[in-house]
Design a protein around this nucleic acid. Structure first.
Length: 570
RNA sequence: GGACCUGUGGUGCAGCUCGGAGUGCACGCCGCCCUGUCAAGGCGGAGGUCGCGGGUUCAAAUCCCGUCAGGUCCGCCA
């Protein structure tokens, strides 16, 4: 039907008789003897010239056949990629008529997302959405190529899986053939891929859809897509290498620039310097530890095991209202308060300044090379809390928008194996219960479990957690020590993970893996704050689909077949 | 489960503090005019339950309460 794409036509085609198909972006009529028509497809716009009136409207689908002609002197349009040429001697064939769209498809104004999602099929015609989804496709292609090149085998794992109540809430699918019993949709192919290792697929990958029935956010949808991989007979460093190669290839495909090697940072360092396990390394504002200086302080507000401080450049100009707002923010994050010190020519300006000793005052004055005109924020609390509160303020005060580069990747390694205790007093796994402890910390599992580091690692880009992985436990003795630390009895382990543990009895290779979110990666490459912008048909924050109306009720017949009763609302 | 922001012709806004007739702007839409425009131009026109419900008031887009929808965040996401 067509010989060229609209946006691909240039002076090299002059003289050619061609056909293009697409949507009418704009019609401009000049009386009964001349009309212009801008035709749009995903590649761009081209102008057709018609010697007469033109019975088409915006968004009509048409096929235009004509001759590519150099534009007459003075009518070249430099703002249009095809602005050197136009189509003349045109025949316009209407393939489909169209009503006026409910919103304008040009990018002159930002349309409310509610309207865009209701008419997503129209929204997708917009240049921005075409760009985002095609960018995402490039990322997918690069990832597949990188994994293939590294000898990984793509294997598809089931969407209908067995319930394993642990971690994220699962989407449940009733079984028609087994009334009263249920499948669940996978939160991740975690167990399936570990079983592939037992099955001898020593390098597996999959671009996998994962589903979690948890509340949505700008960076979280019910369903999301991960590059999921697992490999046998490899070390942690091998896995970091595989993933780095794939991510850097994807970055190069998406942005045209290959980033440098991805640096590593331990979890402990990330927390200490950035107050988070997903540090945004695009800017400084590192946290300073003043605990030693304040160890014997007289100042009540600083009577805590840890005093952390952060310099905010230029922050001395913050109004009292702004500082109160920051204090409220710190309290909302669990801090007892927020101390601030303006650095002025006359010294520190703060309600607390007159209570400080000379040493304390000097320490605050020098935080992170503070200069006159800056402000120093301090939080005194238990170590982790102080770090996290200041880390949150650091991002709130300093993080550039997603659309601003550069892209700073970092591996965060040596996560703790356990993370606090649950209401029953059992330790909780920080990652998942199959994570291998750090070899140097094996002896601490029973004695000082919270100090045990793990061989778990995250990949972080500009403060976004892209994904995580770990070396898995393949030895029954280590696994049973972890289960008992987690308060999982033998029978409970058997009922929940029996088929995995059973498989491991038949020769489990040492293995390790990773998974990272392609939605988030594509969003950052696209420079958007929201993964919905790189997803064709996303859900709203309340989990509905404004286009289809899902979720919806089902018919009585479906309900009967599935033996589903309507539970009373309660 | 919680906090905050938003809701006004098809679209994007202004109006809301300090109540006074659905008032205004831009785009789009419809009609007419126009032979080189390109986010065309000129003239004219249509289009509204101010999200919904209740309250206060002589009078509510505007104030109060509730509710629905969308968004950002906290909880949650092993």
């Amino acid at each position: 039907m067509r010989t060229l794409l609209c946006g691909s036509i240039d002076e090299g085609h002059v003289g050619a008789e061609i056909s293009v198909c697409g949507w009418v972006a704009k019609r401009r009529e000049h009386g009964e003897h001349l009309a212009f028509l801008d035709l749009r497809d995903h590649s761009g716009l081209v102008q057709a010239v018609v010697p007469g009136s033109l019975d088409v409207r915006s968004e009509y689908v048409v096929r235009v056949t004509g001759t590519v002609t150099r534009r007459p002197e003075g009518t070249v349009n430099d703002r249009l990629a095809t602005g050197q040429v136009e189509l003349t001697n045109c025949t316009v064939e209407v393939l489909s008529v169209a009503e006026a769209p409910p919103f304008q498809l040009d990018d002159r104004v930002e349309i409310d997302e509610q309207v865009r999602l209701r008419y997503r099929y129209l929204d997708l015609r917009r240049e921005a959405m075409q760009h985002n989804l095609r960018l995402r496709a490039k990322v997918n292609a690069a990832l597949r190529r990188a994994m293939d090149d590294q000898g990984f085998c793509e294997v598809e794992t089931p969407l209908l899986w067995a319930p394993t109540p642990e971690g994220a809430r699962e989407f449940v699918v009733p079984s028609r053939l087994h009334p009263g019993e249920f499948y669940v949709l996978p939160q991740s192919p975690q167990i399936a891929k570990q079983l592939l290792m037992v099955g001898g697929f020593d390098r597996y990958y999959q671009i996998a859809r994962c589903l979690r029935d948890e509340d949505l956010r700008a960076d979280r949808q019910f369903e999301f897509t991960q590059l999921d991989l697992e490999a046998s007979f490899v070390t942690q460093d091998d896995v970091l290498g595989f993933v780095s190669r794939a991510v850097l290839d994807a970055a190069e495909a998406a942005t045209g620039v290959r980033p440098g090697a991805i640096p590593s940072m331990t979890w402990a360092t990330a927390l200490d310097l950035y107050g988070t396990d997903k540090p945004d390394l695009r800017f400084g504002m590192v946290l300073c530890d003043l605990s030693a200086t304040f160890a014997t302080t007289e100042v009540k507000a600083f009577a805590a095991s840890t005093v952390k401080a952060m310099r905010v450049a230029g922050g001395a100009s913050f109004s009292r209202g702004r500082l109160d707002q920051l204090t409220d923010q710190a309290k909302a994050l669990g801090a007892k308060g927020l101390a601030w010190f303006r650095v002025t020519n006359e010294g520190l300006d703060s309600p607390l300044a007159r209570f400080l000793s000379a040493d304390e005052s000097a320490a605050i004055r020098d935080v992170d090379g503070a200069e006159v005109g800056d402000i120093v924020l301090c939080v005194a609390d238990e170590y982790v809390a102080a770090c996290r509160v200041l880390g949150s303020l650091r991002v709130a005060l300093g993080a550039p928008p997603v659309s601003e580069g550069p892209h700073h990747y970092v591996w965060v390694t040596e996560f703790p194996l356990f993370e606090g205790v649950d209401e029953d007093g059992h330790l909780q796994a920080a990652h998942h219960p199959f994570t291998m402890p750090h070899p140097d910390d094996l002896d601490l599992i029973e004695s000082r479990p919270l100090e045990v580091r793990s061989q778990a690692y995250d990949l972080v880009l500009n403060g976004w957690e892209l994904g995580s992985g770990s070396v898995r436990i393949h030895r029954a003795d280590v696994q049973s020590r972890i289960f008992s630390a987690l308060g999982i009895s033998d029978s409970e382990a058997e009922s929940r993970f029996g088929f995995l543990l059973g498989a491991f009895k038949y020769g489990a290779p040492p293995h390790a893996g990773f998974a990272f979110g392609i939605d988030r990666l594509a969003a950052i490459f696209a420079g958007v704050e929201n993964i919905r912008e790189v997803i064709a048909y996303p859900k709203t924050q309340s989990g509905t689909d404004l286009m289809t109306g899902a979720p919806k009720s089902i018919t009585e017949r479906q309900r009967r077949e599935l033996r589903l009763a309507n539970a009373p609302k309660g």
